[in-house]
Design a binder for these strands. Sequence first.
RNA 1: GGCGACUUGGCCAAGUGGUAAGGCAGUGGCCUGCAAAGCCAUUAUUCUCCGGUUCAAAUCCGGAAGUCGCCUCCA
Length: 471
Amino acid sequence: MSLRIYNTLKGEKEGFVPVNKGKVGMYVCGPTVYDTSHIGHARSVVVFDIVFRWFKHLGYEVLYVRNFTDVDDKIIRKSNEIGEECSIITEKYIKEFHNEMDALNVLRPDVEPKATEHIDHIIKFIEKLIEKGKAYYVEGGDVYFSIESFKEYGKLSNRNIEDMKAGARIAVDKNKKSPFDFTLWKPAKEGEPFWESPWGKGRPGWHIECSAMSYEYLNMPFDIHGGGKDLIFPHHENEIAQSEALYDRQFVKYWMHNGFVDINNEKMSKSLGNFTMIKEVLAKYPAEVIRFFLLSKHYRSPIDYNEDSMKEVVKSLDRVYTFLERAEKAGAKKSNANNGPLWDDFTLAMNDDFNSARAIASVFDSVKKGNTILDSSDQGKDLDIVYSDLRKMGELLGIFLLKPSEYFEQKSKRVIEYQSLDPKEIENLIAERNKARANKDFAKADEIRDKLQAMNIILKDGPEGTTWKTE
RNA sequence: GGCGACUUGGCCAAGUGGUAAGGCAGUGGCCUGCAAAGCCAUUAUUCUCCGGUUCAAAUCCGGAAGUCGCCUCCA
């Protein structure tokens, strides 16, 4: 059983063969840091976090690079709007991004390069492109990449220049040799941040930073390049053009693109005003719930964010933790010795283009099997195997890693705080109910239970007394 | 206009040509004062529709309908 990956470049799944034996180089396009991150950013980051974890699990030595675009028109626009230096803005959002990704239990990449810290590399890259006749300088300070100089342009997104001309929506720029030539370097206007260059004071275009920085850290070709589906064109197409035109060899072996997050079946967009930010979702749901949700559908398909789905995920996660709690109370121990058949299913799913949705079925199968074992009289080693498998799945998915008690405590705390409840009052009500039960006054007991349920408190009567959980 | 994706039970969702995973909800049973949790059983002769290839198709090919995305520095 070996890893297969859907490669956008080929339009099909391929067996994974690393460029260098035993090693994986991966580069994922990170955010432009000018605003708060939304749930769509979270998906991309969480998806590639799983990819990163899985490669490491398979024993590869992984070098994971994810950039920050910290020089850009949007940043400059924001800077002008709020009268704050660009660097203040970018630092603020980098910090926010890190905090949110840490909350989502995303592993930090090995390198997080910033465009502004690689201007020298970028300038050298552009100079070499000009020398090779692949790019040209025009009066005024712009440098463009020449599409006509790269015959394979369009191979990633399956388009050709002639077709694009037919339906062109690009404004014609007299300076450009072809309307599809794109900017490598643009001159700074008054008051804009700039760097000195052979073409005067200016800043890099968007696409060039990824070509320059990936080359710096991963060389060429490297294994995995990822990002959202929207980046296929023009961003990644342009990266290929720049890098392959310059070095005359393959840039990236496997291109991976994640699908979008819709909100109530609508695209997230500024005009609809339905941008759902990570911090909003984190305020509503435990971080694990968000991760679980994002992994519950295959990464290439669109996923719809809505309250019903989130509530379902909350219930599913409760189920897993309920089992873990039960298993631990019964003395289940994690051992690395044996893997069960469900672990094999999980592995098959993950090896099949990181099919986390299918892998999650193994999680529930494990829970079911574990519960069955716990219900039977002889448990023996079987419980440990199922428990260990499940724990290992959790490590690779980055979910249900808490102690069950911690998970339920945090959850209760959230519900109690949200409703401004007093835990003492809850305990008092439970005591009162138990008194009524002892007196066989079940009408009163049920009344109290209903009252608590209205506060989202669910009671469970067991041999050791009554415990409660939040809905 | 160009390129591409999707359409599976009440809802969400896997599905690699060999006879429909998993979750949520529902129903019956065990347990319980009754519940809840957990367990067991059960819920698609069928995968948008129409053709074709094949011993065999949700899976491949052709066509139709519907939904959606990219082509606007939006993950």
